[in-house]
Design a protein around this nucleic acid. Structure first.
Lengths: 151, 151
DNA sequence: GTTTAATCATCAGGAAACCTGTTGATTACT
DNA sequence: AGTAATCAACAGGTTTCCTGATGATTAAAC
């Protein structure tokens, strides 16, 4: 009766836990630069996928365009990103990293890499690839956010 | 030149992606009940670890006690949790689920389980255990949040 | 080709979740 | 006894998210 077995947490919860822990670490790294973890993440997405619009960026992050607008404004104000109209679709405002944004990412990257290394420290060398495979399948299962659609 | 290799995202980013997707799914499930995904998660933690304080709950979620206070207040106001002083340490206000809170969790659980199942749908039956093992090691590596300390 | 529908950006307003900094009460350490 | 650590809470503020509405532009339907 009072003998309740620990009841293992769900996988959903474990994922949240790891994300929370990594966000805390990321925040620590990016705070000195005046960036939040989410802003840093958005910058890395723009680095990997140039010429995204705010709307696409929002879908990629499973949030509404209005939510993303707040962050885009912050990054614009700090001069880390830039934007211009797409001549082929004049509704679209295409985002791109500025040189300042690129420099900031380059400066932060080593710390982030170290954080990831620390996360994986206890695991064998084969684990990262395995974890990647599993996570990508999970993302797929939950409905991948229309990404990686090259020109 | 315009041939940029996709540059695989970091594992930290993949974890965030899966968490974002799962949070979106969770929010959809819990919104009808007037709960956010985070509030639901806090309730499940209290279910698995009765007699936690808000401070412990905060550490468990890698946030400050002040941040957790907002959510605790919301859950108290909705009558989903309760609290009382710990007679052995009168600084502590111990949290516990109310019957209403327990009922709500029971009602939401099937949907959450289905969400997790959907996430894992593409993977073989051995994957969940493997994923759990990897994620637990990651959490450990990032500094586990003083949990699972039974009485 | 004109109407209809979808998409993009944006404004307004608000809620939730985070933070720093401070204070007072209680317990633990010395 | 006195210092340090912990817990809860107050004040005030930022970031991140939402719904709802609007105008501009493109795509689809008729």
């Amino acid at each position: 009766m009072s003998q309740d077995r620990p009841e293992p947490p769900t996988l959903l919860y474990l994922i949240k836990q790891v994300e929370l822990a990594s966000r805390a670490g990321l925040d620590e790294l990016t705070r000195p630069a005046g960036l939040t973890a989410l802003q840093y993440t958005a910058l890395t997405v723009l680095e990997r996928h140039p010429d995204l619009t705010a709307a696409r960026l929002a879908r990629n992050s499973f949030v509404t365009a209005q939510s993303m607008a707040d962050m885009v404004t912050a990054l614009l104000d700090r001069g880390l990103i830039d934007r211009h109209r797409d001549p082929r679709d004049r509704r679209r405002l295409v985002l791109s990293l500025t040189d300042d944004g690129r420099r900031l990412l380059d400066r932060l990257r080593p710390g982030v890499t170290a954080l990831e290394t620390r996360m994986l420290a206890q695991l064998p060398a084969t684990a990262p690839a395995e974890l990647r495979r599993l996570l990508e399948a999970c993302r797929q299962g939950l409905g991948t956010p229309a990404e990686d659609r090259a020109s």
